Simulated scan of single mutants.
Amino acid sequence: MFNIKTKVRNSVNSAVFVLCCVVSVAEAAVPYGLQQWLDSPQRSTENKARDQHRHPGETLGFFGLQPTQKVLEVWPARGWYTEILAPYLKDQGELTIANFRHNDGSLEDERKIFWAKLSARLDADIRKNPQHFGAVKDLEFDPPAMMQLGPVNYYDKVLSFRNSHIWNEAGYLLDVYRAFFDVLKPGGTLGLVEHRSSRLSEISSRAGEGYLDEYYVISVAQQAGFVLVERSEINANPLDTKDYPKGVYALPPTLAMGEKNKARYLAIGESDRMTLRFIKPLPTVQ
C-alpha cells in the first residue's frame, strides 16, 4: 500500500482536477523521419521486439520530438532509446545523456557499480559507432551528490523512461524534477514514462516494487513548477496485475523470478505505464 504524504495532498487534489480536464489519447503520430531509425540495422532484433511494449515512435511523437531540438535523456541505461534519439538528432539537433555515475573505484553500492558498468558500455557503443550516434554529449547524474544537468534554460526536451521510482525510493524525486525544471527552456517539454500502480482512491494506490501512483507523479512534477499538458495510454498494459513477488522486475525484460512462472510473465509483457507530457511555463508578463 502506498499512501500519498500530507505535504503533497493539496497538489494531488489539484492533479485530480487536471486529469479530469486533460484529454487522454490512444496514440500519436511517429515524428517525420524517425521510422528509418526505428528500422535501423543498428538496433538488435531483441530491442526491436520490445517496440510492441514501449511504442517508441508514438511515445516520442506524443512528446513532440523534432530533429532540430536539444534533448536531454536521463539515465539511458543500456541505451534502448539512445540508439533511436541520437541518429535522429545528430544532424540538426543535439542529444545529451545524463548517465549513471562513473566508477572511479570509490563506489561501494552494488547497484551503483552495476549501473556504472552499463554507462561505460553505452559510452563504448557510442564511440564505436559515430556514424550512427553522432556527437552525443555525456554527463554524470547521481542524486543528491551530482545534480547538475547543464545550463539553465537550455534544453527543448527532458526525457525520462522508467526512472522515477528509483528517485522516489531514495527520497529525491522532487529534487530531481526541480533539476529538470531548471535546465528546460521556458515552454520546453518534460516527457515521463513510468511503471503505474493500481489506483485505490484519490489518495492511495497499491502495487509491488517499482511502481508509482500516477496522481502522485503528477503532483510532484507540479510542485517542481511543471504544468501537465496531456497524458496518454500509449504504454498502458491491462494485463499487468502488479501483484508479483518481485514487483515490476518479475516482468520482462528483467524476469527477476527466473524460470518460475516465466511463461506467465512473458505472456503479460512489460509493465503498465503512465506516459505524461509536462511543460515549463513561459514567464508571466507583468
Rank of each mutant, 00 (worst) to 15 (best):
V74D: 06
L34V: 09
Y155I: 02
D91E: 13
G93K: 04
P151C: 07
T275W: 00
L89C: 04
R127C: 10
S271A: 11
E214Y: 08
Y172G: 02
A267E: 12
P143E: 08
H53T: 01
F100R: 05
K7Y: 14
T254E: 12
G258Y: 08
Y155P: 03
G208F: 06
N3F: 12
R50Q: 09
M257V: 11
V71C: 00
R273W: 06
F133V: 08
F2C: 01
F2W: 11
W75M: 15
F161E: 07
I279P: 02
R206H: 13
P238L: 00
V22F: 04
A26Q: 15
G225W: 00
M257W: 07
S44K: 04
Y249M: 08
Y155D: 04
Y154V: 07
F180T: 05
Y172F: 13
V227C: 08
L190P: 00
A170K: 14
K5G: 09
R273M: 12
R9F: 12
I97Q: 05
I268Q: 09
A29M: 08
W75C: 11
G225R: 04
T275L: 11
F133Q: 05
M257L: 15
N153I: 00
Q35I: 06
F100W: 13
T45Y: 12
K137A: 09
Q35M: 09
R121S: 15
Q69M: 12
V12I: 12
A135R: 13
F180V: 05
V30Y: 08
A224V: 01
R206N: 14
Q52F: 11
